[in-house]
Design a protein around this nucleic acid. Sequence first.
DNA 1: AAAGGGATTGTTACCGGTCACAGTGACCGG
DNA 2: CCGGTCACTGTGACCGGTAACAATCCCTTT
Lengths: 341, 341
Amino acid sequence: MARQPTIRDVAERAGVSHQTVSRVINGHELVSSATRERVQQAIHELSYVPSPIARGLTSNRTHSIGLVSTDISDHFFAQVAAGAEIEARRRGYYLVIASVEEHAEADETAYLRLMVERRVEGLIVARPRLPITAGQIPLQRVPLVAIAAREAPGVTVVDVDNRGGGREAVDFLLRQGHRRIATITGPMEWPSSHARLEGYRDSLYAAGVAVLPSLVEQASGWDLADGRAAMARLLDRAPGFTALFAYSDLIAIGAISELRSRGLRVPRDISVVGYDDIPVAAYTDPPLTTVSQPMRAVGEAAAGLVLDAIGEGTTGSGRLLPVRLVVRASVSAPGTPDSGG
Amino acid sequence: MARQPTIRDVAERAGVSHQTVSRVINGHELVSSATRERVQQAIHELSYVPSPIARGLTSNRTHSIGLVSTDISDHFFAQVAAGAEIEARRRGYYLVIASVEEHAEADETAYLRLMVERRVEGLIVARPRLPITAGQIPLQRVPLVAIAAREAPGVTVVDVDNRGGGREAVDFLLRQGHRRIATITGPMEWPSSHARLEGYRDSLYAAGVAVLPSLVEQASGWDLADGRAAMARLLDRAPGFTALFAYSDLIAIGAISELRSRGLRVPRDISVVGYDDIPVAAYTDPPLTTVSQPMRAVGEAAAGLVLDAIGEGTTGSGRLLPVRLVVRASVSAPGTPDSGG
DNA sequence: AAAGGGATTGTTACCGGTCACAGTGACCGG
DNA sequence: CCGGTCACTGTGACCGGTAACAATCCCTTT
């Protein structure tokens, strides 16, 4: 049998009261060193471990925060989760993860409710499919931080600077001399697609280049196949552009494979900029110029904000983390032959 | 203030005892429908949610299992985590994740201890760096399932059939007519590298082909750069092979980029088989023949075994999940010109 | 020597549920 | 009309900690 030893078992063995044991555990000063030693001896002998459950009962704290994500097997969110976990652990909290699968009919709300029942002290929602509002669930003062979500009252949002990323990508292409720059957006249901498209427009506008609707194509998803299909549509409809800004690396790679199948070469004929900087981006042919997003930092920031809110009772304002353009060989000046290879 | 309402608040509002409320919550039969209704009304009005902490106190159960992983941002383990989470949730459990970062000096043991303190009811350890033994930590009857770990007494192991995967990959190359088949292993600290190498040897041995040590090269990691470097060493030392079996897709892609930089073409000059079937594998140039591993199923199986053990008190035996060879264009018969493209 | 005070330790209640058992009232049979 | 049974409900203890307060003990002070 050997059930877990309790504080009272330790007390009996050490010949003191359970309260004294509690004091020793919590490092109170007012215990004589002789007693302290005897108690610690008893703790060791019984290999006693305090029950966080019992602790939680009185303090009404679970020392855990929840992360609800669309799909943690996604590279993007795996990174966020890793960052959040690190930050949480650093500050003595546990991270409980719920992954909402694509095929599930249930939306995030159900999972948030689950988490609240679990009495997590704070919540992170990653890339919610539905807009999140504070009143939506019994969020009785559980701080909520959303990642890559629309702004809403009572919800703190952490995100990467998608608009800035779009601007940087297109600015770079403009600096290389491109003027006819096409773009394959992600699905427009995603706020990030909107923001990157705004960045694209900002950049062209600032350079005095017309924004042609015919050069904007929406991919039906973020994957390779979606990119390939979108590129096919784009080429059929509006050939003649010299550069492409794709909203994910997979879309970019898919687009490149479509270009190649039509005998076009990158970057000789068309320069390509991707988005995400996934590991293979450095090893595609050609290596992909892309916008790197600090997803791990996003996770850390989100967890940090939640934990701050738990500690201080006030929810800080959201943060927009800067992205970084990683220049590789998939971009050259228009009409310039590549250096072979 | 408005602290969380308790079962007694509900009882008072409904004009019954707290015990009756408890019965309603737990669906006991012996409550009159009139009372039941009044209680449910009160629960609704107060938006009462039972505290799992208080529940856990008496039942001494947390309804959570822990997953300790080397790095959840890794695609491989993100999949495992997703599968485990799904299975856990399906059976009414929560999954608590701890990610052990590469740079951390602490090994898995510390995290296992953390989890045990947290009173998880079961544990999954994914790809531990150190051998896990049951006696190692105060695993007072907490069932432990290890993923991709060495067998050990008291530890149930779930894994993919790496040896079988190695065999399948090499069998396929042999069937295509290859005889001089090189292999780039992952780091040999990883049991999976050993198993795949055994599969490689099995297959060659069964076909009566000599296993040449000069054709076996170890990559120093699982990444693109490691694969590229290993391929360089291999070509410098023992040119003349017609096929390569690489132990990860990233290694394979890195190797291909090295081949390409030396003017060799895939599969015309050298056929390549990878391992993992990561998403880009279908879109590399050429698309990569590779061994697909059911990582999500591994996660589900591991969680299932842990939950079975919790329910039945007996730990089942481990499982070896079958892998599947995905045939794409990176393999052809030796000496055969590819079809262009 | 009695009172006061600090250091140390013990007592008791409480957190919010569940469990074991003890009522309570209605209905039944004898 | 009374005891017994059944359906339903209430009481009190308990899970394993923490918090508040009380009680010692040992000095010091007057």
